[in-house]
Amino acid sequence: MEKHWLVRPKTIRLLWIVMLGVLAVTVLLQLGIEIHGEFHIDETFGFGAWYGLGTCAVMVIGAKILGAVIKRKDTYYD
């Protein structure tokens, strides 16, 4: 059986390229649009981008560390 077109490696590579392109566009768009934040930090260039990437990394890694402590086999309560 042939793989669904969406999961073929070729498509996936294309998707990565498109995605990185879109990411670049969203950041570059900020050159044309002036952002008026309430605080200084949110007026930095590409705030959403670096803040989103950074906090997500923190959350995932934090969850990973916490998980090491609180994860149990899923039959724990049975």
Partner: peptide, 8 residues
């Protein structure tokens, strides 16, 4: 734009 940056 800000939201798109954040989410993407």
């Amino acid at each position: 734009v800000g939201q798109l940056q954040l989410l993407l």
